[in-house]
Every structure is written in structure tokens, then in C-alpha cells.
Amino acid sequence: MKKSSLLILLIAVNSLLNAQIFIHPYAGYMFSSHPFKMQSVEVVDFVQTVYITKLKYGEGMNPGMSVGYKVNNYLSIELNGCTHVFTTFNNSIEQRDLRTLDNFSYSGFFGDFEYQSKIYQVTPQLGYYITKNKLIVCMKIGPNFLKSKINHNTHYIDWELDIGDWYPLNTNKDYEYSSKFNIGIRSSVGIDYQISSGLSASVNFVSVYNNCNITRGVITRYEIDGVNHLYKIQDATTDYDKGENVVNFSHVGFNIGIKYIFKKISKTTPDADNKSNKSSNR
């Protein structure tokens, strides 16, 4: 068993050495191209103010790696995988003390809003290359498979009206949303600079177009004035049908990376070796 595994490993290593296989670790920052804008409207004494909260899903630092195979000098096929880190953002919209107001209306969210959106992406890509000396311009495109997990942590004052008086309820409510893999498009255009025969540095402008159907939402925390009230919620878990809760994770940004191309070992005949030796002797 061990022998056969070793044999398979050797064959795999051998084929790896004979192919123009490359690895391309990279990192960069992506900006949400379709942030979700949440409006919170305050009207006090017939004066209106609208507060905007941008939920920048898909924004964050973007480390990843792709493994590819260069078919020839112009074409490559590769498998790209990446995630997003540092995706926690905070927003805060202050609400006035309703006890001091006479004529008012509020709609939308007022309070502290922290959200985090982790995403995982896998993309098989086709690349096209144009080479000029040490510079290689490339364009890549492929279907993007994206899976997400979103956390919303909210802290707000829930006002309770009791016999004509307002009572503030200091509330914390957290939500967790998850999805399955959703298909979109990933493409990039960039430049590689060849440092040596097998090593190059790359800069890529990346565009990802991907909506994500949220499949499940769970209320994970519900506290009023520090007391747990989660057990009072009958349906803490909500399952969503396709199209019912869609989040746009589209993003654009730049990635910087290093590409290492495994050297192709050409199989030469003894004659060819002799000829090359002779020519070198001359």
C-alpha cells in the first residue's frame, strides 16, 4: 500500500515538474461596489433628517491563492481560492431622547450597528497573456462560487409607551445569516513583472459580481437591560426561499502577489545531450 502511494506521489511530482504549473499567492483590498444603503428617517417638529448607513458587504482584505497550469505562452487555466479578513465595520446613528420631544416620527434603525461579513470564494479561471520582454499583461475570467456568513450585532434603545409615558429599554440583539455557494463572475486584468525565469510579481485589478441568497437567519442574542430574553422569541431561526433575502457581495479592488512557475524539465535524448555538449565545447 505504502509502495503504491509512493509511486502515485512520484508520478504526481513528475507530472508537476513536466507541466508549466504555477502557484500565485496574493493579497489586496476589495471595496464593496454595491453597498446596501439603509435609510433611517427622523422627523421632529416637521423637520426631516435622513441618515444613511452603508453596509459594505464584500469589502475587506483579500488574501488568496491560485494554482494554475500554463497551456502555452498565451493561455492558462487556474483554480483560485480566497477569503476576506478584517470585514468588521461599525455604524452608529444617535437617536434623541423621545421623552424630550413632542412632535416626532422615527423610521428605520437608530443605535449602534456592527456587522461582519466573512466570504469564501472559489473560481476556476481562464487566463490570456500578452508578453513583452519582462512584462506580461493578463486578463482572467471565470465563474465565481461564493459562500458567506454575516453577523449583525445591534445595540439600540427600544422605546416602550406605557400610559402616555415613554420608557427606554436598553436592547442588544444579534443576528447570524448564512448561505450556500452562489454563482457569480470573477475577472481580473493585470500586469506580471518577471523577476527571474520562474518568479514574477503581479498587480491585478479584480472585479467580482456576485449576489448571495441568504438561506438562514438566526437571532443569537436578545437582551433587554442586560437580561436574556432570547427564550421568549418563538421563531429565532428563519429559513429564506431563493430570492427572498439577497445580499450583493460584488466588489472591486487591487491584489498584489508573487507568482512562482515550476520549471518545465524537458526530456532530452542522449544524442541531443551530446550535440549540446559539442556545441558548448566550440
Binding site: V43, V47, Q48, V50
Partner: peptide, 10 residues
């Protein structure tokens, strides 16, 4: 771009 202190109808 912004709605701030917009006077509405009384």
C-alpha cells in the same frame, strides 16, 4: 446627496 433639517409641510 444629503437630507438634513429639511422643512416639511406643517
Amino acid at each position: 446627496t444629503e437630507i438634513k433639517d429639511l422643512r416639511l409641510g406643517n
